[in-house]
């Protein structure tokens, strides 16, 4: 592992770029108003980001080839979706999901 100072500087550097990505839109939009077209575009951001973050975890990347399926994450997603439909409760969904993947790994080595 790299030296303490190198890691610390890396942490500060990554912290600054992440912080700017988080706050600059707030600072800029305090002064300016978004056009209706942009607002409509942004209305799709929540579902697009959430589904992208989910789907990315269902596959394993092999640059230049079709991705393969991450069976553990895919199969554990099914009880998570079912519990979402039945209970509509985030806590239940998370617990069901974690237990499902834990069981898949324990019994099937996924």
């Amino acid at each position: 592992m790299s030296s303490f100072n190198f890691v610390l500087l890396t942490i500060v550097g990554t912290g600054v770029v992440t912080w700017l990505s988080r706050i600059l839109p707030f600072v800029i939009l305090k002064k300016f108003k978004l056009s209706p077209g942009v607002v409509q575009f942004l209305s799709f951001v929540p579902i697009a980001i959430m589904s992208a973050l989910w789907f990315e975890n269902l596959f394993i990347q092999h640059i230049g080839h079709l991705p393969s399926i991450d069976w553990g994450n895919l199969l554990a997603s099914i009880p998570s979706i079912i519990s979402a439909v039945i209970w509509k409760n985030l806590l239940v969904i998370v617990i069901v999901g974690v237990i499902s993947l834990g069981c898949l790994r324990l019994f099937f080595g996924m």
């Binding site: 959430m50 589904s51 994450n73 554990a76 979402a84 509509k88 998370v94």
Partner: peptide
């Protein structure tokens, strides 16, 4: 991942 599934569904 379960959290994103839940939040997406909700």
């Amino acid at each position: 991942i379960a959290m994103f599934i839940g939040l997406l569904y909700l």
